[in-house]
Design a protein around this nucleic acid. Sequence first.
DNA 1: TTGAGGTCTTGAATCGTTTCAAGCCGATGT
DNA 2: ACATCGGCTTGAAACGATTCAAGACCTCAA
Lengths: 345, 345
Amino acid sequence: MSNVAMRRVGLKDVARAAGVSVGTVSHVLNHPERVGTARREAVERAIEELGFVRDESARQLRAGYSSTVGLLLLDAWNPAFAEMARGVEDAAAEAGMTLLMSNSARSLERERAALKVFSEHRVAGAVVVPHDPRSQELHQVRAGGVPVVVLDRTDPRDGVVSVGVNDVLGGRLAAEHLLELGHRRLAFVGDPSLAVPVQDRFEGVRAAAAEAGVELVELDCPLSVEGGRTAGRTLAQMPVAERPTAVACAVDVVAVGLLQELPRHGVDVPGQVSVLGYDDIPLAAQLAVPLSTVARPHYAMGTAAFELLRAVVRGETPAEPHQVFAPTLVARASSAPLGATAGGE
Amino acid sequence: MSNVAMRRVGLKDVARAAGVSVGTVSHVLNHPERVGTARREAVERAIEELGFVRDESARQLRAGYSSTVGLLLLDAWNPAFAEMARGVEDAAAEAGMTLLMSNSARSLERERAALKVFSEHRVAGAVVVPHDPRSQELHQVRAGGVPVVVLDRTDPRDGVVSVGVNDVLGGRLAAEHLLELGHRRLAFVGDPSLAVPVQDRFEGVRAAAAEAGVELVELDCPLSVEGGRTAGRTLAQMPVAERPTAVACAVDVVAVGLLQELPRHGVDVPGQVSVLGYDDIPLAAQLAVPLSTVARPHYAMGTAAFELLRAVVRGETPAEPHQVFAPTLVARASSAPLGATAGGE
DNA sequence: TTGAGGTCTTGAATCGTTTCAAGCCGATGT
DNA sequence: ACATCGGCTTGAAACGATTCAAGACCTCAA
């Protein structure tokens, strides 16, 4: 009790205290129904008194399975990913499994390290938002026997199970919304080369614009508030006659930057420029000018990914290995018909 | 290679392939310098070819120590906590340790479960944002041999090591700022009974108000945007003569709710009511009316907690077991001198 | 009374590593 | 040529649980 350097209590100690064998104690822990009431209670009392805590390493080593699952995110602190993580987390908690969460912070090295940790810990499976869904590491993990569900990225080719969003459709929704409002000079702000989903959104926007025979400028910037700000300055400095009257952003955070910088340079939103985000992060509705955006069901994607993983872990091959959610348009105040306050000079 | 049900490769297989004993392979993994060059390379080649991955459970069981640390948050998706988590995470990554992250979601049951997982995994230590710093569970974990650093909560009494913020001072800063602006009817919005730090803030505000001989109303609401909204409605409906001209919020998110609801009911911010937040979440600066607030160094708190934990794990007793950061006032647009646009009916 | 058929218990083997003491081997010093 | 020494290797004993086959005990029916 008082001795600091006291050895940890193990099954053996409990067994001795309760006057039974170690096998019995183990059974109380794992198959209580197989043990007689009297002894079971004696064992439970001993566990309580000695403060015994089962050693998970030993358990796992012998039993050969674990109820820990890995979750690897790209950007844990990005609100959209945080929401997905919450979905995975809640689903895991409900299933009584523990989550080993990691964050690659968009660094390949950290991604590699995290995947290695997952396999070393022999996790039952992992939900991964990878840099590149066909990366070598990812496949090594799968070859190493760890089932993987890819989140927010799709690759129909190989046997990977995945949960994603039809971002091409999302891009199209965004563009069509702006076109319906009468806009004829559009811009896409973001950097398609940064990630496949962003590329898809761009693709959708581009296709819709092309079909409508409308001009589209691409303005590259980092996917951050800061990036949005610089893009905003660029936009503000364009001659009004050439300036797009509506922009679709790759992600909401970029739109936030735009919304900060445009008014500061005398460009009214949505009077002179309509701004559309992508993701529908919680903050979007709470901005000075509530942001029109394309919503993705992040939380549901998280729970779906976990459920899919559970199935794969159980050895089932899901009927629908590539679950694709549909995005929806949420019109708020940052987008308006062309010419509402127009020209505005 | 192709056989799905192939047994995992272990040390033994590597040893056989490389023509050495298992002891040697283990040495290559843990003390490469003790092994001759020729064999070391043979072993490394075999590891590579067979795709061997060390089993962490077995390693930990035998070696008796782990390089995993636990992190238990109250509210992972609250921006302030997310920022702390980022600090802990980066520090851990830098130290080459892995993080077992959990989220109690303000549920005692989940907190208990997470702590149990930590002890079962025999983590080297844990950083915990507890519900109640003197809770039974927390002490059981410590008694079980897991060193704990308490984050964002302080209890000078027992031997717990902790990192916190002087929130009494923070509350005082908030109140004094509002007093300096000439306000004489203050309100505190939030619920001091919900958490110790909130209680401290309230204490600070109350003390400063009392010293100035100024009236202070306490308005309780949940610590969420929604809570802030309801509080905003209550406030808006008060007769102007009685209504506080300045409110200090328990946390930024409540202020966000206020900022949404007050203007909607014709109450101008900061014209008729000044609003002060607490935390300085990233969003604070980006609101329609940039939020004046009391900033806390969340990221630094996270890294500090981890460093403290490392020391404790090494067996050192930190010279300064209770690290207390100082909050600072950040004046933005949501607070203004009394009567700037005043009366304003 | 005995045998069959349960239900509970138990002891021992086992999981894949680390680590320690002991062995081997070639080189060095005398 | 012998003793000694130091660097590499090795085999075997843990680590703390789970599990399985086998034993103990009890009850009930014949």
